[in-house]
């Protein structure tokens, strides 16, 4: 069953002058069709201004479609009576870790979501503990968020969403403001959620190497979905990705260059190990 389904989604930013007449219409999303199944890990790639963050905000009922529909777990996001159900079903992690942590202590921040949902006190505590454990931050539960590194803060944000027991978690460029080691720990935590907890994950990013392990990838450009497929299918089209100003992961790029020089390697090599194995086969 589709947990998230966007059908012919169109969203327009309308700029108005002082009298309220529209002067300029920017189409941020142009007939987007994206569907995500329960338990899937879906990556959404795109350069700045490709509409990927706008799309994310539709899944959480922060923005509403101009045309088309967004269905989250059977609920239409425009149905006002279900807004809070939509938001607790599709949890959202944002880019800037400093601007989404509300509590002054890690565990209090993680408890914020369940508090809003009216979860009884005893259950809040068990949810907080289990969520912090899932992202490997249990030992920092009494710390002040200000004392944590960027990657740790972002993991706390993820735990904060998990504590609401969502069916699906949307991460809107969670690593954009982190250093490489912070990126790695966040990506590892996200993969763990998908592998171990079977959580549906929608990861929006412009770093290609973060979605190498995804089940499916959508590539967006200028508000449209321009490519769609498994990582292997996507990354074998190196030229097209480059025309969209996206960087291909290192191993894929090397394989592609070698192939151009006449070495018989298959398309869509994703990891270093794969590349080494294939090169050894060539000898």
């Amino acid at each position: 069953m589709d947990i998230v389904k966007a059908d012919n989604l169109v969203f327009e930013y309308i700029r108005r002058d002082d009298e309220g007449n529209p002067v300029d219409v920017t189409t941020a999303l142009d007939h987007v069709n994206i569907d995500v199944k329960q338990g899937e890990f879906v990556g959404i790639l795109g350069h700045n201004g490709s509409g990927k963050s706008t799309f994310a905000k539709h899944l959480n009922a922060i923005l509403y479609p101009t045309e088309g529909t967004v269905i989250v777990d059977g609920m239409n996001t425009t149905d006002e009576s279900r807004v809070w159900d939509v938001r607790s079903t599709a949890g959202m992690v944002f880019q800037n870790p400093d601007n989404q942590i509300i509590g002054q202590v890690v565990e209090e921040d993680v408890g914020f979501g369940p508090e809003n949902l009216g979860v009884p006190t005893a259950e809040i505590w068990s949810r907080v503990e289990e969520s912090l454990r899932a992202v490997g931050m249990l030992e920092f539960r009494y710390k002040s968020p200000g004392k944590l590194s960027g990657g740790q803060k972002q993991r706390v944000s993820i735990a904060g969403v998990l504590a609401m027991h969502p069916k699906c978690i949307i991460l809107d460029e969670p690593t954009a403001m982190l250093d490489p080691s912070g990126r790695k720990e966040v990506v590892r935590a996200i993969r763990g959620l998908n592998d171990v907890e079977k959580m549906t994950v929608i990861l929006i990013t412009h770093y290609m190497d973060e979605v190498v392990h995804a089940d499916r990838i959508f590539v967006m450009d200028k508000g449209r979905v321009v490519m769609h497929g498994t990582p292997r299918e996507i990354f074998s089209q190196v030229e097209q990705l480059e025309s969209l100003r996206l960087d291909v992961p290192g191993p894929t790029r090397i394989a592609w260059e070698l192939k151009k020089k006449g070495i018989p390697l298959p398309d869509g090599i994703l990891t270093c190990e794969e590349l080494v194995k294939e090169i050894q086969k060539c000898r």
Binding site: N60, I62, W84, R87, S88, G91, M92, F94, I102, E107, E108, G111, F112, G113, P114, E115, N116, L117, G118, V119, P120, T121, I124, W125, V128, G160, V161, M164
Partner: peptide, 14 residues
Amino acid sequence: ARCYRGGDGRTKMK
């Protein structure tokens, strides 16, 4: 996004 909708109906962790 984390369902804050004012003080009513909230429970307390502590």
